[in-house]
Design a protein around this nucleic acid. Sequence first.
DNA 1: GCCATTCTATAGCGCCCACTAGATAATGTG
DNA 2: CACATTATCTAGTGGGCGCTATAGAATGGC
Lengths: 203, 203
Amino acid sequence: MRRGRPRSFDRDAALRAATMEFWDRGFEAVSIADLTRAMGVKAPSLYAAFGDKKTLFEEAIESYVREFGGFIDRALEEEPTARRAVARMLHEAASWQTLPGYPRGCMLISAATNCTPQSNEIAQGLVERRNEGIAAVERRIAADVEAGILPSDTDAHALAVYCTVVLHGMAQQARDGVDRATLEIVAHTAMAAWPAETDDIPG
Amino acid sequence: MRRGRPRSFDRDAALRAATMEFWDRGFEAVSIADLTRAMGVKAPSLYAAFGDKKTLFEEAIESYVREFGGFIDRALEEEPTARRAVARMLHEAASWQTLPGYPRGCMLISAATNCTPQSNEIAQGLVERRNEGIAAVERRIAADVEAGILPSDTDAHALAVYCTVVLHGMAQQARDGVDRATLEIVAHTAMAAWPAETDDIPG
DNA sequence: GCCATTCTATAGCGCCCACTAGATAATGTG
DNA sequence: CACATTATCTAGTGGGCGCTATAGAATGGC
């Protein structure tokens, strides 16, 4: 058995509380005092359990991605075509970005936007995660082009960037107060820009 | 003539320098020390000329909107239809958001994202400016619906939000490093989602 | 020349930040 | 029981923040 005095708080619950704070206001705007209050844990216990503020934030990001960000990968994996995957992704984003009782928008986008030099690596990490998201969509699109489902002259990169633009723009609008129903219409509207699939062309 | 010792720096140039700082990193992440360095002005002169940090930021926003944000209103005023206005707006955004030698993206979107309570009013002011942008696009769309240029079942609000989603998403992608050419394609792609204009329907 | 006025420079204010030293409490092990 | 180990608490640390008191420098008015 583990020796010494046992931890008196639920580490997972505390991490979830920290994630909500960071999601809501971002890395720099949330102070250690805010975190100890929200997590119900005094500073020394926080540092003992999670390291420093950056490490805690990174763990919060992991937790966020597991719980709220998995829908993108699931859509890309489970749907039969890139088009259906993106359509599902955008519609599910409308829900996730306006969940009642949770912060609006996407933590990967808004949690490290205004950065002092000391948190540049945090911001850089999120940029890489976002760009990896684009790359995943781009690979899915390229696969459909290869398979003849999408026209051979499709610009996979630009189309993937377009999808990401809509996704990130929706997150911004969710933060600004747009409701879920409107975002659903936006998601539907956005799909009208998707190129005609080869099967759609008669003859 | 104005009495007393004359100011030894160019107030407009100093304001432009401050605007660049705020545009690049946002309200909270730019310290007074950063500003005095960038503006070439010591703190007491800065406070004498611009009031406090919030007031300076607000003036920087005004300056930014005058110099870099006017293209939206111009497009909405000068183009004959909402469609052409939005198309022009998105294409010009691709340029403005990737200007060489200037920060990427849009200051109105990214300059007050991560906020401590003391800058909530700053963030709220930007939210209102952004929502006013949506409203302006929506009015232009509604006018075209009224005029029979757009289908009568057009959801003017949702379409305006879609346009804003694309605009803001482009700004985010510009910050993440997407180049102007790709954003131009994105802008063009996005317009494919625009509803068919009534004139386009034969018969 | 001399004063009132206005700007500039040095130096530092109080406050909050992320973080921690040191004492104490609660456990497993013998 | 005593002891090693680990967590917790109080009470800070040094440092950067926005901002400013005070003294000195540069102007116009007389």
